[in-house]
Nucleic acid binder design. Structure first.
Length: 577
RNA sequence: CGGAGUGUAGCUCAGUCCGGUAGAGCACCGCCUUCGGGAGGCGGGGGUCGGAGGUUCGAAUCCUCUCACUCCGACCA
């Protein structure tokens, strides 16, 4: 390809509405342009990258035995009503009606459509297991699209759905997908981690997310140094250091006048005690019932620990999303304002985190204004109804498998695999006959990859002051050829053209910068670097005098000379395929 | 949806407080010079100042309404 025949849409300055580096560079390198919030046009160079990512995903999915299909983007409301998600989904499901006033939505995911397809096609256990996938634009009317392509409303996704006769078969395919995803992200040249994850709205039991590590990521992921444990912080478990073993003798509790000290921080300085001696009591809303007429629940943690909302939301009887009780509600039921709350004499459920369960002689609120209890103890002064893991783990906690300390890093979620179980097959009655002729609900799994997001994530991980640095596997072009003074030197032109032809014949993708003499060498160097083309050849009279070309890797500091005669072998050895 | 902010040329921005014929740099077009790191000179084209309404002799500027976009929070590939 020649730049004169191509769209080089580079920008010298950073558009004002792009905040993160990948968004800025995608605009500056001329990969995308915005149409509206969360909706982008892919320009030729950007589309080349997107297609390369797509091709790798497709190859590996095919290798795993999955079968490619293509399902409609527009889906009828009936299916969504059948699964129950029409009402559950909320406004990110973009709904509209056709000319007959029949309701439809733009597909944000395709569990309903594939389940409908398979319940009609499959009758026998002999047809299982099966795994179907597609690579297609999805639409989710995000509350807040941001970071360009990273969280767009319209985005390219690979989604796969597997069907099984039982859980054991699902687990087999799940493992295969786990391995397939690892292969895909390795081939893409990305630094990634697979982590245990929450299942969220999609439902199901086991789930793993695949994260590309990058400081701009929106998720905190937790892992230990040996790699034996990794999880999203939403559900990460960790062993807390210096946990009270509860072996000290119980003392007699006494009341302390703590005046205006209403926060853990204020109490630690007032009493000159570490936060680990204190107990933190949070009052949240719970489902109202005969046994819980106030509709409240107390969540209790050690003073230095923080609540993990997502873990808490899984407690039975709690209101989801997690909602804190108002000051008025607390005052009406308990008789004092927040700041002096404690897990004593509460007539609604008390859930205590493992960090606080075995504490002895602790400080907690006395549920009286300006009064705390010192040397309080479970059983004597306070009671709880159950122990749960509801704390947010911290960097430095010990790995739950005993292997080292936990680290926390930011990650960009680019893949997510789920064991769905029978959630959809049950709602939509998708069954086959087993070997005994009995009707059995199919067990399902689903597996997503954010294909367009990968493009942004790859840039977040691979860039410098001059622009993008593509991994070879997904670069829009592998080699840039820059002829210098071509308008004066027929030899430079001839060699450049010949090299492009030879490289293209050998299967490489080449961009020859043949823009005319008004485009100075500096502009060409800058554009090719901004676009992130990983290998560069400069053809100049100066070099040709010695029968040499100049090669520079986008990642390297300096250029090197290459004999003209051996340039093909030289490049073949350096370009990863 | 709550909070904050921005809309003026393709891009980056000045002009708005204090009303008086719409500007700069880059990009683009033509000619000349230059040619290994975003060149220089001369000449040019390009704007419903986000939109609607109002105040005024006169509005980018003041007032009202509205739309779009960005950032921060709760959700997701």
């Amino acid at each position: 390809m020649r730049t004169s025949q191509y769209l080089i849409a580079t920008l010298r300055e950073t558009p004002a509405d792009a905040e993160v580096i990948s968004h800025q560079l995608m605009l500056r390198a001329g990969l995308i342009r915005k149409l509206a919030s969360g909706m982008y046009t892919w320009l030729p160079a950007g589309l080349r990258v997107l297609h390369k990512v797509t091709a790798i995903v497709r190859e590996e999915m095919n290798r795993s035995g999955a079968l490619e299909v293509s399902m409609p983007v527009v889906q009828s409301a009936e299916l969504w009503q059948e699964s129950g998600r029409w009402d559950k989904m909320g406004p990110e499901l973009l709904r509209f009606v056709d000319r007959h006033e029949r309701p439809f939505c733009l597909g944000p995911t395709h569990e309903e459509v594939i389940t409908d397809l398979i319940r009609n096609e499959f009758n026998s256990y002999k047809q299982l297991p099966a795994n179907f996938y597609q690579i297609q634009m999805k639409f989710r009317d995000e509350r807040r699209p941001r970071f360009g392509i990273m969280r767009a409303r319209e985005f390219l996704m690979k989604d796969a759905y597997s069907f099984h006769i039982n859980q054991a078969s699902l687990e087999q395919t799940y493992q295969l997908m786990y391995q397939t995803y690892s292969n895909i992200f390795s081939r893409l040249g990305l630094d990634f981690r697979a982590v245990l994850a929450d299942t969220g709205n999609i439902g199901g039991s086991t789930s793993h997310e695949f994260h590309v590590l990058a400081d701009s990521g929106e998720d905190d992921i937790v892992f230990n140094s040996t790699g034996s444990y990794s999880a999203n912080i939403e559900l990460a478990d960790g062993l807390i250091r210096d946990l009270d073993d509860g072996s000290a003798d119980m003392l007699q509790s006494r009341e302390l006048d703590t005046a205006q000290a209403h926060t853990i921080e204020a109490l630690t300085s007032l009493l000159d005690l570490p936060a680990t001696r204190l107990i933190k009591t949070l009052i949240v809303k719970a489902v109202q019932s005969d046994t819980n007429p106030h509709g409240l629940m107390a969540l209790v943690l050690r003073g230095d620990q923080e609540l993990n909302d997502i873990k808490a939301e899984k407690l039975s009887g709690i209101v989801s999303p997690l909602t804190f009780a108002t000051d008025e509600e607390i005052e009406n039921v308990i008789g004092c304002k927040p700041g002096c709350l404690g897990p004593n004499h509460l007539d609604f459920p008390v859930v205590v985190d493992r960090s606080a369960e075995k504490m002895r002689n602790f400080i907690c609120g006395a549920n009286k204004s300006s009064i705390h209890l010192a040397d309080a103890n479970w059983g004597k002064d306070c009671r709880f109804d159950m122990v749960a893991d509801i704390r947010k783990i911290k960097e430095g906690d010990l790995s739950p498998d005993g292997q080292g300390e936990l680290l926390i890093k930011r990650g960009i979620e680019v893949g997510h695999i789920f064991q769905l179980g029978t959630k959809y097959s049950q709602a939509m009655n998708a069954s086959v006959l087993d070997e005994n002729g009995r009707s059995v609900l199919m067990t399902m799994g689903c597996y997503g990859i954010g294909v367009s997001r990968i493009v942004a994530a790859a840039i977040e991980q691979n860039n410098d002051a001059n622009g993008i640095i593509w991994p070879d596997a997904i670069a829009p072009f592998q080699v840039a050829i820059i002829p210098l003074n071509a308008h004066k030197s027929p030899r430079v032109t001839e060699i450049s053209e010949q090299l492009m032809t030879d490289l293209e014949k050998a299967g490489f993708e080449v961009l020859l910068d043949d823009r005319d003499k008004k485009t100075s060498p500096g502009v060409k160097f800058a554009d090719m670097e901004l676009m992130g083309i990983p290998h560069r050849i400069v053809v100049s009279d100066r070099g040709l005098e010695n029968n040499e070309l100049e090669y520079k890797s986008r990642r390297a500091e300096n250029a090197e000379s290459v004999p003209l005669a051996s340039v093909m072998e030289f490049l073949s050895a350096r370009i990863a395929t």
